[in-house]
Amino acid sequence: MRNPYRTQRIAFFFLLLATLLIVVPVGLIVVIIVQKGLPAINWQFLSDIPRHGMRAGGIFPAIVGTIYLVTGAIIFALPIGLLAAIYLSEYSKDNFLTRLIKLAIVNLAGVPSVVFGLFGLALFVVFFKFGASILSGSLTLGIMILPVIITTSREALESVPYSFREVSLSLGASKWQTIRHIVLPNAIPGILTGTILGLGRAAGETAPILFTVAAFYLPRLPASVFDQAMALPYHLYVISTQVPNVDEKIRYGTALVLLMLVLMMNLIAIVIRYKFRKMKKW
């Protein structure tokens, strides 16, 4: 006779196994990077420029470059993405064009990042004549993370109960007042989730910045948004493949710094999200 409890135990075992299979590689990656990279981390590594053909010294310009690029991408993508999401979820009529736009946005999220890189090269670097610059790189990264921000923001807006909107309108509030005072405040946690996902992607991608901003070796800080900059992922690629005889611990140290940077930015967003979630009152 079949024993449902035994079946359940077996099923639980496989579910647990699948979960562990996801956790283990993530844990291993972190452990290996920390183990091999931690010895490289010291004040000089974080605050000095690269020296001796990037075999010694620090990675400060790359850290600063990545922070600039990610900040620039968010400044560009968050407002536009949010406004587009508001339009799509609150104002647009459900017709063929709207559905086409939504489909295009979802598909845009799946476009390989190197394609965005080429697009950025053609549009920002060449056509708008921004050259290889922080501006071009930020815009390219921004466009790359736009679909993520739009999709998650739209979901966040649509998850605010429709009845709240009706109540607000029934009291004589205008549509925009309803969005501004009722819908948006309650969608912020979800919007921040999208921003976090976007942040992580923008910080880690190499291909989009390859043609648009990244400098192979620039032992100083960028002077303006029209300046080139070093960036952590590209720097990691360079010292791992293009420069011979780079100490392993410098490579892993760079990876560790990139990991920490993304983690720290996420942490800030998570804290803000937590604050807003606590305000959520239904």
Partner: peptide, 10 residues
């Protein structure tokens, strides 16, 4: 409305 629908406010 039919159901009590307070807004998510104080």
């Amino acid at each position: 409305f039919a159901l009590p629908l307070p807004l998510p406010l104080s």
